[in-house]
């Protein structure tokens, strides 16, 4: 039986205020270990909000998120930070690298924050990650000395630094040219093929088609789940978690 890496149960994210606004409205989703899931949908549909919830960057108003079987709704902010540090890797539309640091230092950041490895081992892993993404010769360059695609690859290396179970990427190719987009997507595909779970929000249907599953969100709800090859797996009335286990 396939192991579930991440599971969302009846997830709701509501912005309270004078006018209450629901960003995510009752989403159930299970993502298997090593699976590559693309979340698509029109602007404002709630796909990024869902991604931030799944990566524990944001807390749901209702529902539960389980990462590797561990419920997270009752965790304190510090405990959630610990889970993010060890189990999740983030890639954003903009690289968000620390500008004063070199590529290598940026990649070392999560490892140093975790403080588990020795400095020598961290540097070795950081260089290996950069090398595997074709950035070996750029290890000592600062972000402003790199191209957009190179910066995004450094951000991916940083996301992979602590060997997280899940890579969460919010439109990682949104600000890249076609060639860089292809490179980044291939890397994410390889990551999933190597056993790590990848969840990507994207506007690009061609890229989404290369994911194992495409989850289409409309108005904060799952409108459609499509498996690679085009088979529609679920309509909104069917619980997607159960389907994914099948």
């Amino acid at each position: 039986m396939t192991e579930v890496a991440l599971q969302a149960v009846d997830l709701v994210r509501r912005i309270e205020g004078d006018v209450s606004h629901t960003l995510v409205n009752g989403i159930d989703l299970a993502v298997n270990k090593g699976e590559f899931v693309a979340i698509t949908g029109p602007s404002g549909s709630g796909k990024s909000s869902l991604l931030y919830l799944l990566g524990l960057l944001d807390a749901p108003s209702e529902g539960e998120i389980m990462i590797c079987g561990q419920p997270t709704s009752k965790l304190s902010e510090s405990e959630r930070a610990d889970v993010r540090l060890t189990k999740c890797g983030f890639v954003f539309q903009f690289h968000f690298l620390l500008p004063e640091f070199t590529s290598l230092d940026n990649v070392l950041l999560p490892m140093r924050a975790a403080g588990v490895m020795a400095e020598g081992a961290m540097r070795e892993r950081g260089l290996a990650l950069l090398g595997s993404l074709g950035l070996a010769e750029h290890a000592n360059k600062r972000p402003n000395q790199l191209s957009g695609g190179q910066r995004q690859r450094v951000a991916i290396a940083r996301a992979l630094a602590n060997r997280p179970e899940i890579i969460v990427a919010d439109e990682p190719t949104g600000a890249l040219d076609t060639k860089s987009t292809e490179q980044v997507f291939s890397i994410l595909r390889d990551i999933a093929d190597n056993g790590q779970t990848v969840i990507v929000v994207t506007h690009d249907p061609a890229l989404a088609a290369r994911a194992d599953r495409r989850v289409h969100i409309v108005d904060g709800k799952i409108a459609e789940i499509t498996e690679r090859g085009g088979a529609e797996l679920v309509s909104p009335s069917i619980a997607p978690c159960e389907i994914s286990h099948a």
């Binding site: 510090s78 930070a81 924050a113």
Partner: peptide
């Protein structure tokens, strides 16, 4: 602000 956000998102605790 962006660096703070990214460090927090990476899992660095607020007090750190």
């Amino acid at each position: 602000r962006q660096d703070i956000a990214i460090m927090k998102s990476l899992g660095m605790r607020e007090y750190a």
